[in-house]
Nucleic acid binder design. Structure first.
Lengths: 184, 184
DNA sequence: CGCTATTATGCAATTAGTTGCATTAATTGA
DNA sequence: TCAATTAATGCAACTAATTGCATAATAGCG
């Protein structure tokens, strides 16, 4: 049910259309919960049927019409309740690690290249996060509470990407040192 | 298709039964790819039908009989090919972060308690990983290549859990400092 | 005028994962 | 001897997610 709740969370401060939500799930909340537009539209229909959200048809002149979804009091209540519930720690699930685990099946350079590539991907993501941090969160201790929480999730993103980079470096160092010892 | 490949990976060095695999997915490879026994048995049937693995019936006196699954040359070939393919970075997906994101909906202490609880869960996991490290990987630079790769995945686990703990600490520090300023 | 991009919404099929239930056999401890 | 635990395997129903396809309207460019 977490997609449902992620959508409710995205509607707390403002109404959004399915399209808006799709965009929103490509940044912000999408940094730790992603969903395709197909998923989002399907879920919106369910949520509206349950009366956790309702929709407002907006006719637009310069663009196709849209439906703006608002959180209902019932939806707000359910979201609040869900936030207060404890949840389990999610387990890692990462195919790259499965590949590394049996990395001895292929040439070391294949793994090295893949690690270098992922290091690059993560450092790009880190740069994105750091830009957001600099633009919106200059003085975290002065933030109003509503903004402190999103800031904390951004901090998690930054730490996460940094951790990835550091691990890639450690792994690459160990692998390259080894291939120095045993050249092909 | 990654569960299929995770199973193949688990069978590279030795044959295992569905039950063995279930146990294996509770540790080792399961630290970064988990699966229930129902999933595993279903997948084993598929893999055998594709001839990527084959089974050997083992009659046991002191226990129920079992089926030992072996990787076939075809399965080995597909696994090797899959390992060599590049893969995408997996996005984070974590309900705790969704909850923190809209943490302002509930009392700060609710979030603080949840963060403290997760900090505990992650430090327990970290302790598990560190024990494994000490028992099996004393001298990483002297490891044969086959063991170096699993060691690298363990290192990732350790860094990951440490990163979680550090983030929880940072978050708790920011939240408690704030609640000092504005007591209820 | 036609092409591409953007905005906007959705259905259908398939694959992956979760949850609940079920069975058989032996071991161990009360 | 009975109950609980461990070893062992699996089906069925349901939910969640991915993939592929489809449509429609407008804007902007050449």
């Amino acid at each position: 049910m977490a997609l449902a709740h992620a959508i409710l969370a995205a509607l707390v401060h403002q109404p959004r259309s399915g399209y808006d939500l799709t965009k929103y799930f490509e940044r912000s909340i999408g940094f730790f919960w992603n969903a395709s537009h197909q998923q989002i539209y399907r879920e919106l229909a369910k949520l509206e049927a349950q009366n956790w959200i309702d929709s407002e048809a907006i006719a637009q002149a310069s663009r196709p019409d849209k439906k703006l979804y608002h959180l209902t009091p019932l939806g707000h209540q359910h979201l609040t309740q869900w936030v207060a519930e404890p949840c389990e720690a999610v387990a890692m699930k990462d195919d790259l690690l499965v590949k590394v685990f049996v990395g001895s099946l292929v040439s070391t350079s294949v793994i090295e290249q893949e690690l270098a590539r992922h290091r690059q991907l993560h450092s790009e993501k880190l740069a994105t996060y750091k830009t957001i941090q600099q633009e919106y969160f200059q003085a975290p201790r002065q933030l109003p509470e509503v903004d402190l929480f999103p800031y904390l999730t951004l901090r998690r993103g930054i730490r996460h990407e940094q951790e990835w980079i550091d691990w890639c470096d450690e792994a690459l160092e160990l692998l390259t040192k080894r291939s120095d010892d045993k050249p092909v």
